[in-house]
Design a protein around this nucleic acid. Structure first.
Lengths: 168, 168
DNA sequence: CTTGGAATGTCAACAATGCTGACATAAAAT
DNA sequence: ATTTTATGTCAGCATTGTTGACATTCCAAG
């Protein structure tokens, strides 16, 4: 392993910023994301669903009554793409739609009991892996992990993430 | 923000392992990965390619002369899926194939000059974002980041990553 | 040496999930 | 009241994952 501790003029650790170190980090991100999604993907594929369904379930569970438009902003896909996913979740009885009370154009989304059950199954699997990784890595590593992730986000995603982070 | 520093019996930071903290980390991973792929995706879509083409270019660039079978192990997709991507990269003149010298079943893959140019463009964009995130987060965060990522990988991916990390 | 099986890669067809475009309905603005 | 804007749906296309069928090459057993 190359020396990681060379100090720059302002005491910064510069070797982290070599292209080679960055390339390794990029590859780590790629492989880690495979792991991140592997367990839920397995469960979903048995039920004929995909990763997009998981994302929808996650954010509906997190913000019950959210609208389609709301979800679009969070997920960063087109409404047409999301609509297809929602349609199949509704048809399968995992999601319930209620037409807006004040604004009748809006559709408010809720998990059914079954939907909540599936969401729990998926997020339990994902949390279990995350928990194990965090335990192995230790609390300081986890803090660093979250710091870097936040910096990697687009401005818009970061705002969304912040807004979700503290309640909402 | 909730207190992050509660200490467990063995001095471990246990609050990180609450479901709520884990859920936030999961969301951070989701949004960060969007950012991670955003810049290359933009470039690729202009050229009529997708993320799968980027991955192939990356690993061919990294290990010139690698075989199709080799790439399959790294990318974790089926050979049929990879084959389609390679076919279009070859047709576009970005990748060159040489039939194996010893084993004529094998196809060895190389980037053409154009392919190397495109790969450089894509990886420069991705590295720029990573570099900026690392700079903002600081060296200790980066160490933690990489530690956690490595722990999140599947066993097989971790072995692959380790093998790639040190030469090879 | 021949033959049968294993390894490598290609082609075809299907599914999930992005996308754009056209449209219906409800709300808001003029 | 009519036009414009916002929200959501439906249809069709592209990318990229999948499985299945097949061709070629290598290797090992007889």
């Amino acid at each position: 392993m190359a020396d990681r501790t060379a100090q720059g003029p302002r005491g910064e650790n510069l070797l982290f910023l070599t292209d080679d170190q960055l390339r390794k980090a990029i590859e780590a991100m790629f492989f880690a994301y495979q792991g991140f999604t592997a367990d839920p993907d397995r469960i979903l594929s048995e039920k004929g669903f995909g990763r997009a369904h998981h994302r929808a379930l996650h954010f509906i569970n997190r913000s019950p009554g959210t609208t389609v438009n709301n979800l679009l902003g969070i997920l960063g896909v087109t409404k047409q793409s999301l609509n297809r996913v929602l349609r199949s979740l509704i048809a399968a009885g995992f999601v319930e739609v209620r037409v807006g009370d004040k604004d009748k154009r809006e559709r408010h989304l809720f998990l059914t009991e079954d939907g909540a059950g599936l969401e729990k199954m998926l997020s339990e699997a994902q949390r279990a892996r995350m928990r194990a990784a965090f335990r192995e890595a230790g609390p300081e590593a986890v803090t660093g992990f979250r710091t870097v992730l936040e910096q990697m986000m687009d401005e818009e995603s970061r705002r969304m993430f912040q807004r979700l982070k503290d309640g909402a």
